[in-house]
Write a protein that binds this DNA or RNA. Structure first.
Lengths: 193, 193
DNA sequence: AAAATTTTCGAATTGATTGGTCGATTATTC
DNA sequence: GAATAATCGACCAATCAATTCGAAAATTTT
């Protein structure tokens, strides 16, 4: 390898794919090594443990996600279509991260504090984005109701009714189906045509 | 439970979901039991082994798939839209079954002959359906080329070029992306607008 | 209502799996 | 060609996971 950081990134990306598919528990070091076409023991030259890899993956992904959201927040300025897109991106991102997240609680690993932090901060940002979306939506009259606060609450409640907690998804959820259901509710129910 | 068959079916469906998500190897009896809200040992009252459950699942799914295809073959009579639908159904079904299928080769289990049978038979039927699709397509002039045989080959090759072997998909493939790519090729490239 | 039977389950067993180590080997740098 | 960096195979201890088993609940039969 050219340099250590380069290789670490390669591991993070590769392991990330596997973690996101199978979760922490079901992902084995052998698997990661096989995917990297490397001896398992070589990985330990770059990382201390499986958990360290996992940590790195979560941080890496959270970062990407944050950037995506930052981009998304800008597209909120345009109406429905962009919003759809935003919701889609958001759901996809959630699916991915929630996999990592669930993976931890799955096992009774010692609690990673830093992940709780990520999540909390993330929730707050999410809420801000949603508010902005609602605000613009109301201003541009794509929403059907008067009080934006009320709408925000309505969406939240509706989503919860669909068993999709607004700020975190359960891993069993079939994202495609959920997304359709949610888009239906969002864009046929609450929003005007 | 009301009767034994009833319960077996419940197991098959539940286990099927887990198998299809994680494959044979990574699916544990504990997990299945937990999902069924039952003691693990109780399952062994209805099934001899994990492998027997797996067998049952594959047979069950293959049956559903066959029915879906039988339905799909009828919709081939109408042009493009229906075909799109057919391709979609087919890909979805492949994704599911291929998960079971790959799961076997993953491990060096003794080879299940009966699954090889299913696959072979299935491939033949697939090919027949594809032929029919091409034939109708040509007749209704939605295809762009003269020889239907040639087209069939072209599609096959194209798909293979996309790393999607026509008759079986690899499990790592992101079905949504692949599908879009394939539909593009099929309906913009080979078929007339 | 007790005996017989069916169904469920917790605990134990046993073999396999897996995260991680270590010393040796191979590449790379100086 | 020595010194350092990177890779690896073989190994270990701990955990896990499929299966068994006997006994406890349920249920049915008598």
């Amino acid at each position: 390898m050219i340099n250590k950081e380069e290789f670490r990134k390669r591991v993070i990306i590769t392991a990330g794919q596997i973690f996101s598919r199978y979760g922490f528990r079901k992902t084995t070091m052998d698997e990661i090594a096989r995917e990297l076409k490397m001896g398992k023991s070589s990985i330990y030259y770059y990382f201390e443990s499986k958990e360290e890899i996992f940590e790195a993956v979560v941080l890496y992904e959270a970062n990407i996600l944050r950037n995506e959201l930052t981009t998304a927040i800008k597209s909120v300025e345009s109406p429905v279509d962009k919003m759809k897109n935003y919701v889609f991106v958001r759901m996809k991102a959630f699916e991915k991260l929630s996999n990592y997240y669930n993976a931890i609680f799955d096992k009774n690993l010692d609690h990673f504090d830093f992940i709780e932090n990520i999540r909390t901060r993330y929730d707050r940002e999410e809420l801000a984005i949603l508010r902005l979306l609602i605000w613009h939506g109301t201003r541009k009259k794509v929403f059907n109701v008067e009080k934006s606060e009320y709408t925000a609450l309505a969406i939240q409640t509706t989503l919860k009714g669909l068993e999709v907690p607004l700020f975190w998804m359960k891993k069993e959820v079939n994202i495609e189906n959920r997304l359709n259901a949610i888009l239906d509710v969002l864009f046929n129910g609450i929003l005007k045509k």
